[in-house]
Design a protein around this nucleic acid. Structure first.
Lengths: 239, 239
DNA sequence: CGACTAATTGATCCAGTTCAATTCATGTGG
DNA sequence: CCACATGAATTGAACTGGATCAATTAGTCG
């Protein structure tokens, strides 16, 4: 899951966060311990982990790779809800069926735990229940930030938020926040941000021409001016 | 909270729901029992229950009235995340601060429970923890459906989804699903759907001219053709 | 190297915004 | 009880950000 969260740590009382995300970054030691008992599953690129409507038999933790969570209409319109990364949980929730589709963007490895087992354990161990609550609480905050981004921000602001979210994720994982890898296609990004691939491409070139980023490859973004990117994301500047 | 959910009960495996919502419709008998021990608070119209950044001291259940949950940027752009109705919980989550603003749209009555008490109780009673998890799970599903609506649907589709969500809420509460009361202003609806007040107004008149709804007052919508409204929401028809 | 798919770039279009009046409600004081 | 004030809603006209349509161009895999 992405963390498209508040820009400069201390956000003012009434200001909305830049963005946040929908799979679940693990704040869950208890969960992790239980998870360790689960089996692993390897997934090929573009293969689905589960589809909307499938019975929610398992909860998964991403061990390696990146998974795209999305909803789709019969007419083909698709909304990407989140991208889940190693350490994130997917498939949490109470419904008996999954409401999202989960597709690997690259070869991935998952740790699986039967949902029934998790519910049973949580019925005995209140700490585990609270951890699951905490995990969902983060997902919810992420979804609400994403909602703000899609409902209120311009195309340039959305792309800036998206890149900043990936950069902050890197910082949290002790990876270089100045170098952002994009395991997803332009189409995935477009469906995540409620835009088209052409608009994504145009905004990236605008950012490049403004010397705010460099596109070393089309899947590799070097952030040259993080401050400018944040100002853009906050609507304090425009391209 | 609104239920902008799947249109015709049985939604196909890969199809996205029409919409759902972000405060928490109570599936929580345990929660209710604990809540009953809390104090009540009366709120005037347009008064805030809490603001983003406030310490999350209490969790509230709406007893009467309607509460609008929103995020706002320094430049004034506002995203309404949800509308909470009697029976819904607001203020759930793990963060020490509220991330949303909660404003009463009309005089309201709330039941309050200290957040610390709730956490303590949940630490002892796993069933309560699971109920809270369930409540958040519903909020999350709602936020994800809303995300789809804002990211992918046209203005007419969004308005149709919104009206259907209120109609379904009525059905669930054994009120007339054919008569929808709008306690919120056009501006609240616009900020909820990521549109402008003018667009909301225009779409409502279009629906009226198409004999799909009747506007008995500007706060009172009579649904004349629910099927047509659903087809519209699903993108199977247009105005 | 050739075939395919993904990404970029350009030209045009249009849904929804913006700006600008009215019109409609609602409440208030004489 | 009505006249008038105030904010909300509607309606119209013009504009524009992002979509759509249409080529290229750049990667990537047999």
């Amino acid at each position: 899951m992405l963390y498209l969260d508040s820009a400069h740590g201390s956000s003012s009382m009434h200001s909305a966060a830049v963005m946040s995300s929908a799979a679940t970054m693990v704040p869950a030691e208890g969960l992790e311990a239980y998870m360790a008992t689960g089996s692993t599953r390897s997934i090929k690129a573009r293969e689905h982990v589960f589809s909307a409507g499938d019975a929610r038999t398992h909860v998964f933790r991403i061990e390696a790779g990146c998974v795209c969570l999305y909803k789709i209409m019969p007419d083909g319109r698709r909304q990407v809800i989140d991208f889940a990364y190693p350490g994130d949980y997917i498939g949490l929730g109470c419904d008996t069926e999954h409401s999202l589709n989960a597709q690997a963007l690259e070869p991935a490895r998952l740790r699986c735990l039967p949902a029934a087992t998790l519910t049973r354990l949580a019925g005995r161990d209140p700490a585990l229940g609270l951890k699951m609550y905490e995990a969902l609480s983060l997902e919810l905050a992420a979804a609400q930030d994403h909602l703000f981004t899609i409902g209120q921000r311009s195309a340039a602001e959305r792309v800036a938020c998206f890149l900043l979210a990936l950069s902050r994720r890197n910082r949290r994982r002790d990876k270089d926040p100045g170098l952002v890898v994009l395991p997803m296609t332009r189409s995935d990004i477009a469906d995540f941000l409620g835009l088209t691939i052409e608009t994504i491409s145009r905004m990236l070139t605008k950012l490049r021409l403004a010397k705010i980023i460099d596109l070393e490859q089309c899947t590799l973004v070097r952030i040259l001016d993080g401050m400018a990117l944040e100002r853009l994301a906050q609507g304090e500047a425009q391209l």
